[in-house]
Nucleic acid binder design. Structure first.
Length: 424
RNA sequence: GUGGGUAUAGCUCAGGUGGUUAGAGCGCCAGAUUGUGGCUCUGGAGGUCGUGGGUUCAAGUCCCACUAUCCACCCCA
């Protein structure tokens, strides 16, 4: 097909008949973010490549093979955001937000880019709603962001999401577990898939959520990280569970979820749907206490999540969730002849200035065609202006549902329609 | 990066074993005695049959390559 007339692979247009769904979801997001005390942050669509290499971690798949990276005309290496957190961390440091009253609670809605093969629920450009909290180490924050996500799902009438939580420890206890894990696996190295053999040295944790059947068997009876957490991490995880219990949020402790980004410490979690195909993660996040420091800011605890808006919409569609349709045009002017169109143009303008949405024919169609058009657009009322009406200085207002028509003097039409709209 | 499915009108799809001007439904535009929508009827526009090769007297149909798209793997939202 033509390059010219086809969106790049893995990208999607949101056409006018769909955009109201996005407005609806984004509206709920902003409403709930406000309810929880989060303010919006907007960061650039691209950042210096180094930020992601450092922040996300250069052993991750995201950095190793999925980034949209290019050299700009000044010779800088630039990368389109492959996730939302790193840019916000950078902005927190650059904007000296650590000098403001802590914690800082922010949210964003942003495009995210990853070079992957598209499939159901996966695009090269998608959009994420994310939240980040800086300067608060307590487990109550981890519980709060999970609660925020749950509240949003409820408000959107999304059902059957499964919340999985886990703790992957901190720099003081995770190395111990790595050792235990490697000792356990070293005897069965030859049974692992080739991918996992490489992970063994680089990031043994990731072997835990390999989908290969033989790896799963090896890993089935592996020691669990939760048994090796240091006292602080253990207390933190217990705290998280207590807060979730208190909020009445059901969850499953799943020691096999580890997440693909290097910056996580302690809490990690995922919301998973079975209704949208193989890529079921709708929301993923956790705690990242070392990230701000790693990126050159003061040591600052942090926690957050990213939520895929396309996947959100997919779940809603597959679950048959009704989204309120956008408001229709209030009134359409149907004109016969040039003079009528001229007069209608002025009236339409007056109506719009008064907050009544109005439109008129711009293509010189027959009166019948104009009616059909208004009917197809489901417009509740039309105003008819032809020679007779011009002669009498009035317009005929027709209610499309009932078919009733009423003549109204031209200079009263604005007030008349305002009155009608108050009644609707 | 790997594997599988699909590719005919704006949309959903027909087009046995290759055979003259490629069809339907829906949608779009127009009309049914000249100023009125929905129902009905009539007409019209719109297709280099994804692209490029090959086989053949003849290819939408068979073969090859490429591209796009969908689904799955890896991984992730």
């Amino acid at each position: 097909m033509e390059m010219l007339t086809q969106a790049p692979k893995g990208t999607k247009d949101v056409l006018p008949d769909e955009s109201y769904k996005w407005h609806y979801v984004e509206g709920k997001i902003r409403e709930i973010a406000r309810l929880f005390g989060y303010k919006e942050v907007r960061t650039p669509t691209f950042e210096h490549t180094e930020l992601f290499e450092r922040g996300v971690g250069d052993t991750t798949d995201v950095v190793q093979k999925e980034m949209y990276t290019f050299t700009d005309k000044g010779g800088r290496s630039i990368t389109l955001k492959p996730e939302g957190t790193a840019g916000v961390v950078r902005a927190y440091i650059e904007g000296r937000l650590y000098a403001q009253p802590q914690p800082i609670k922010m949210y964003y809605i942003t495009p995210v880019f990853r070079y992957e093969r598209p499939q159901a629920g996966r695009l090269r450009e998608h959009h994420q709603f994310g939240v980040e909290v800086f300067g608060a180490p307590e487990a109550s924050v981890d519980a709060e962001i999970i609660s925020l996500a749950v509240t949003l799902f409820d408000r959107l009438n999304i059902k059957n999401l499964e919340l999985n939580i886990n703790s992957i420890g901190c720099p003081s206890c995770r190395p111990r577990y790595h050792q235990v894990l490697k000792e356990y696996l070293s005897g069965q190295l030859d049974q692992l898939c080739s991918n996992c053999k490489q992970r063994f040295d680089r990031n043994p944790l990731r072997i835990l959520d390999c989908k290969e059947e033989r790896c799963r068997q090896v890993v089935a009876s592996v020691p669990v990280i939760l048994d090796f957490l240091c006292d602080e991490c253990k207390a933190h995880f217990d705290g998280l569970k207590r807060y979730l219990d208190a909020a009445g949020i059901p969850y499953k402790v799943n020691p096999m979820i580890v997440r693909g980004l290097d910056y996580y410490t302690k809490t990690v979690f995922e919301f998973i749907s079975r209704d949208i195909g193989a890529q079921g993660t709708v929301c993923g996040g956790g705690r990242y206490d070392g990230l701000v420091g790693l990126c050159g800011g003061p040591e600052t605890p942090g926690a957050g999540f990213g939520m895929g808006i396309e996947r959100l919409l997919l779940v809603m569609e597959n679950q048959g969730v009704e989204i309120p349709p956008p408001p229709k045009l209030d009134v359409m002017f149907i004109t016969v002849g040039d003079e009528a169109r001229f007069q209608a143009f002025k009236l339409v303008r007056d109506l719009r200035l008064k907050g009544i949405s109005a439109d008129m024919d711009h293509v010189g169609r027959s009166i019948k065609a104009q009616f059909k058009y208004a009917d197809k657009l489901n417009i509740p009322r039309v105003c008819i202006m032809g020679e007779d009406e011009l002669k009498n200085g009035c317009v005929k207002v027709r209610d499309m549902a009932s078919g009733r028509e009423e003549p109204v003097p031209m200079n009263e039409i604005v007030a008349y329609l305002e009155r009608l709209r108050r009644l609707d």
